[in-house]
Amino acid sequence: MNIGVLALQGAVAPHREKISHLGADMTEVRLPADLEGLDGLILPGGESTTLLNLMAAYGLEESIRLFGRFRPVWGICAGAILLAQRVENPTQRSLGLLPATLQRNAYGRQNESFIEMLPLRLPGRETALVEGVFIRAPRIADIDSGGEVLARRGEEPVAVQFGHVLATTFHPELAADDHLHGYFLELCRKAGTLRAAG
């Protein structure tokens, strides 16, 4: 299995470690052609304005939107902002693959960044306590119906899933465990099997 990580800017390297530890290959995506043959795509943490700028300059907005219609996509922090249908504080362009509203820098600046243990409820698995690393994190202000909340911090959803689209406002690539990477790879495997059958 081959998982792509958008490598325009941001926290790419930690994903390579997690993905190879789980036995899959990782491809860095910088140009539309790099998406060919990938089983899934991770939009990593970084700066969403930088990522948007480079995505627009290299024709990646349209190609990722197309890729994400049929294949698993996981957005983390800035990546989740890129995926959202609606972005606030301030409003900005996005891919619109995640039927939710994301609020940028919702907890404040770096001094307000934090790590907190979160209960993660993955379908068909026992609830696991995972490290939530929140760095200048956005907030999922609302989600449309049909979404599943995989983790909450208090009342707030911090990990959500709509079919094959996954979004987390914290950074599982910086945590000690690999629950969410394992789960995403499973989504990619299932989607691949369905494609092969269909």
Partner: peptide
């Protein structure tokens, strides 16, 4: 958390 933000700035 400090190096975490630096991680986010990589490649930039």
């Amino acid at each position: 958390l400090k190096t975490g933000l630096a991680e986010m700035l990589k490649g930039g």
